[in-house]
Amino acid sequence: MLSIKNLRVSINNKEILKGVNLEVRPGEVHAIMGPNGTGKSTLASVISGREIFTVDEGEILYKGKNLLDMPVEDRASEGIFLGFQYPVEIPGVSITNFMRTAVNEQRKYHGLDPMPANEFLAKMEEKKKMLEIHAKLANRSVNEGFSGGEKKKNEIFQMAMLEPSLAILDETDSGLDIDALKIVASGVNKLRRPDNAFVVITHYQRLLEYIVPDIVHVLFDGRIVRSGGKELAIELEEKGYEWIKAELV
């Protein structure tokens, strides 16, 4: 589904990703861990097409298509979703209106008519219920004045509405309380299907107890230096990154 080969990325002539390789197949859940500032969010941004980064080398194929040639919104319509580490506020735009626009623009991309209003609202209700989102939240402006946890939950809500085939969740767990974490995780698990995949970026093993990954990667200084099963996450939690650093030298 997603195939990244020797990806080198820089910003302002500073190299951040130094040759990343990653294969994600349908049905899989991948976890990416790694110290602060090693390029996890950068990788997520580049997959979704953020233009401030320069791709110096390498390729990203998604469902066999060259992603790097595709505008951000087309990638989204092709099923790539990014759960932001820091979701932005859009004053005055209600979540309902925002989501309706997003759903219908994606439908338009696929040559479909806009979703009928009643169908859309029913879907909103269903997903809100699944994620235990307060009814009033949906009438508020996108992320405006939301608490940290509410923002993260809102990201997952949007994911549930858009039903992507590849969801990249960037530290969705940080800021969530234990209950919210369980709700979000079970929401993600309900959305898992044999034909979609998740890449979960996290610092904590705890999330991975609820969303069980098939493969765990360690991103370190712009490279994936180690991949393994879910035990790797436990090992990291116990030993910290010094251990990997030591091995690398």
Binding site: E73, F84, T101, E105, Y109
Partner: peptide, 25 residues
């Protein structure tokens, strides 16, 4: 740019995103 990227990432074209943000404003 962050707002535009956020909208784009949801499948919303830049033109529509501006319409949305301006109407919100």
């Amino acid at each position: 740019d962050d707002q535009l990227f956020y909208c784009n990432q949801r499948g919303i074209s830049t033109e529509s995103a501006i319409g949305l943000i301006v109407n919100g404003y």
